[in-house]
Amino acid sequence: MMRRGSTTVIRSILTTTTSPRGFSTGADKAVVTWWMRSSGGAARNASTVALGADKEEQRKEETVVNGGGEERKGNDNKEITSYWGVPPSRLTKEDGTEWKWNCFRPWETYQADLSIDLKKHHKPTTWLDKFAYYAVKSLRLPTDIFFQRRYGCRAMMLETVAAVPGMVGGMLLHCKSLRRFEHSGGWIKALLEEAENERMHLMTFMEVAKPKWYERALVFTVQGVFFNAYFLAYLASPKLAHRITGYLEEEAVHSYTEFLKELDKGNIENVKAPAIAIDYWRLPADATLRDVVMVVRADEAHHRDVNHFASDIHYQGRELKDNPAPIGYH
């Protein structure tokens, strides 16, 4: 049997000979070894518990110092410590289930307004409007030839282009706001919101249409050309750039209308809606591809209105910052 007084002595020695960070010193280990040899199994158990407590305390201390961040690696959950102490957020849905999307958050979801007028059209009157209109129309011909009636792939290509104007416009307005030390009237947020919404369209249709290697290569080419061309157009004339985007969104509305017709005819299978679309647009659990196309088309119509509105502001000789931006319009 181990005497109570001896246990107290060992505990006292362990306490006084432990380094500030919780590591046992050489004297500590020597005393424990001697006691194990002289006191048998009970002493071994006591020393094991003491050293185990030391290691647990050390682990807790390092977790506190390093921030205690956790990261998912493979199929196992492993605790990853980080000096910066930035823990991942743990979010749940309204029903209590885990939120599995990292690309958007629950408060960024919404129910699309399907009552928007899909037939609205800005009739080109000035030569700048006509240039924008026919420039967009000229892009439709090669698209029709390349994709024909493969509307899933067409939608994928469309969204890789449609997400560019909002990002370019928001970026240039951001830089302008910094240079002039002035507010943007909310237009930076509105345009970046548009770009993010278009990107979510792409993430959705990536689940529906699996692009082939040459279609991915085409995206590289088209996006590279369009980004630089639109960047220069926005620098030269924001009213032209927004008008181009307005007409581009009109074409998007037309494309998704044709998509719906093919779905209704049965030429395209009306498969179950991707999970990411159900959560992003707050669709019912049994939603289908047709429901997804409906809400995406409504989004495009809202973007059409915003960009034609922005172009009209410039045509009236005013600046965007002087007119409240339609944040959250979609």
Rank of each mutant, 00 (worst) to 15 (best):
E250T: 10
T245C: 09
D76V: 14
G328R: 06
R21G: 00
K60L: 13
S38P: 00
A310L: 03
M1W: 01
G74W: 03
G69T: 13
V64K: 12
G328L: 05
R243A: 13
A50R: 02
S24W: 06
R154I: 06
I80M: 10
R297A: 12
Q111C: 10
T33C: 02
G186Q: 05
V253H: 05
F205R: 04
T18D: 01
R150A: 04
E159N: 12
G5C: 02
Y256F: 15
K137Q: 15
P324D: 08
A163F: 00
H330V: 08
V296K: 04
K210E: 09
R105W: 05
E108M: 11
F181K: 09
L218M: 12
A233T: 13
E70W: 08
Y83I: 11
A112W: 03
A277Y: 09
E249V: 03
R282K: 15
S19F: 03
E319N: 14
E108H: 03
T221G: 01
L248R: 08
F146N: 01
V65K: 14
S39P: 00
I10M: 15
K189F: 04
R11I: 00
V9T: 12
K55F: 11
K73T: 09
M2F: 15
F147K: 01
M2K: 01
F23V: 11
K60A: 10
V32G: 03
F309Y: 09
G166N: 06
A275Y: 01
R297M: 14
R44T: 11
F23H: 08
V293A: 15
A46S: 07
G41L: 14
V253E: 13
T81V: 02
N307V: 00
F309N: 09
F231P: 00
M1N: 05
M167P: 00
E182D: 04
E258S: 13
M171D: 07
E269Q: 10
V86Y: 05
T81Y: 09
E62F: 01
L235R: 10
Y134N: 12
A46R: 03
K210T: 10
T126H: 06
T8F: 06
S39Y: 11
K137Y: 02
T125H: 04
V292P: 10
A252V: 14
H121T: 10
A43I: 03
P20N: 01
D54L: 12
P324V: 02
K55D: 03
A275R: 12
Y110G: 06
T48E: 11
D28E: 10
Y134P: 00
E194G: 02
R3N: 10
C103T: 15
K29L: 15
K189E: 15
R105V: 08
D95W: 06
G22S: 03
A27C: 00
L141S: 06
F147H: 06
V225I: 15
D95F: 07
S184R: 02
A217C: 06
E98K: 11
L91D: 09
H121W: 10
L263H: 02
S138I: 07
Y329V: 07
F147L: 03
F259M: 03
G185P: 04
E56D: 11
A277L: 08
H201R: 08
L128S: 12
P106M: 05
T8C: 02
Y315N: 14
G40V: 07
P211E: 09
R243I: 00
T15N: 12
Y247G: 04
D95G: 04
E258G: 04
S39K: 14
V136I: 15
E182M: 11
G246S: 07
R179F: 10
D312V: 05
R37I: 06
